[in-house]
Write a protein that binds this DNA or RNA. Structure first.
Lengths: 214, 214
DNA sequence: GTCTATACAGTGATAGAC
DNA sequence: GTCTATCACTGTATAGAC
């Protein structure tokens, strides 16, 4: 069955699986071409370089993801004149997480570990560092839980992951110099997100405390 | 002046600068040892491997960062019995962003690009992909701006970066299988964060719409 | 212990024959 | 289009000098 595929597709399939299993850096072109049963030079002939092959592997999946996102957004926009904010965010987030955390039908089995390799999580670096500073995270989780009673522990852990992701992403951006303003924005953003998870409903009826998705 | 440092420190300094400039993968041990004016084998003697050297470079900065975070948290907790949620988040976020986006005194000049290398943003992969799908981001930014009038464009762009960071980070985590629940949490979290930036004050006095930090 | 010179297997890339 | 041969370069290991 795999023998009927083209050389290009055989390379892409083998590369995707090996990248997910061992990371980009640790996977050699010789491993890939051997698994795909093609010649070593075929990679450089069809893709130009190892870097370009990595890009092609991602493009194949991200094209489908962004197509799904836009289709879902357009459908929400066409349903009614004023689309709900949550509907827009749904269109952006749900297809992405379905790809990495969904069932085998929606998502591709290698996508999550491929994303980990994407963020360089394949090597021991992230693991070692996060283990080393786990006590800091625990300390902050405890402080937040005290300041914000009523949030489920599992959900709090998730929210903290959201904040860490937002912070890390922002730290690697080179856009602005104004650390104070960015920090203020993120603090405000994170606080509002955290407070939205408190199960005690506010007097303001507009505050969402329960999921409204199907 | 650099000649007075130990071999270990000379390697760390040279490695940090070169990693920040060219990324981990693109920087060879021979470049590092040449810049540090030490022998090639000194790296493996003092650190064991290139991977361990990368870890040591980060540890030197992250130790200071997490120390600052915890000190700031303890100070907030000792000030009054019930610490403000924003104070806790401040303690976590402000020292981190000061490191990457702060002035030369607080922050280390290479830290931001080092973080970029940390997230593998040094190579063309992230750049190429984000350029390729920029139209998707623009489409969503427009939809959100329509659904949520009153948010400044610059701030909305920042909030979107927060959401992208949280989403990407979550996608690379392998914790749970329940894509739907995670997505619901993130949607709720992001929506609350976005709404908190709307300049029209709510009837609920507790909603923060302006920065309260010094 | 600290450092050096040297050697080794494996890498991505390329030129040219078929 | 495909393949072979070859290139400069990589991280790592080791034997030995100070």
């Amino acid at each position: 069955m795999t023998a009927s595929l083209t050389t290009c597709d055989r390379i892409l399939d083998a590369a995707e699986q090996l990248f997910a299993e061992e990371g980009f850096h640790a996977t050699s072109l010789r491993q890939i071409t051997q698994a795909a049963e093609v010649n070593l030079a075929a990679v450089n002939y069809h893709f130009g370089s190892k870097q370009a092959l990595i890009l092609a592997v991602f493009r194949r999946r991200l094209d489908a993801l962004n197509k799904a996102r836009l289709e879902r957004l357009e459908q929400s926009l066409s349903d009614e004149q004023a689309p709900d904010l949550e509907e827009i965010l749904d269109a952006f987030i749900v297809p992405a997480l379905a790809l990495t955390h969904g069932s085998a039908e929606n998502g591709h089995p290698f996508m999550r570990i491929l994303m980990r390799a994407f963020a360089d999580r394949d090597d021991q670096l992230h693991r070692a560092l996060s283990a080393e500073y786990a006590h800091v995270m625990r300390r902050f989780a405890g402080a937040i839980a005290t300041a914000l009673p009523g949030v489920e522990e599992k959900q709090l852990r998730r929210q903290l992951d959201f904040i860490v992701g937002a912070l890390t992403h922002t730290m690697s951006e080179c856009s602005a110099k104004d650390a104070r303003a960015i920090a203020d924005d993120l603090v405000q953003f994170a606080a509002a997100g955290l407070r939205s998870a408190v199960s005690v409903p506010s007097v303001d009826g507009a505050v969402r405390t329960l999921e409204i998705h199907s």
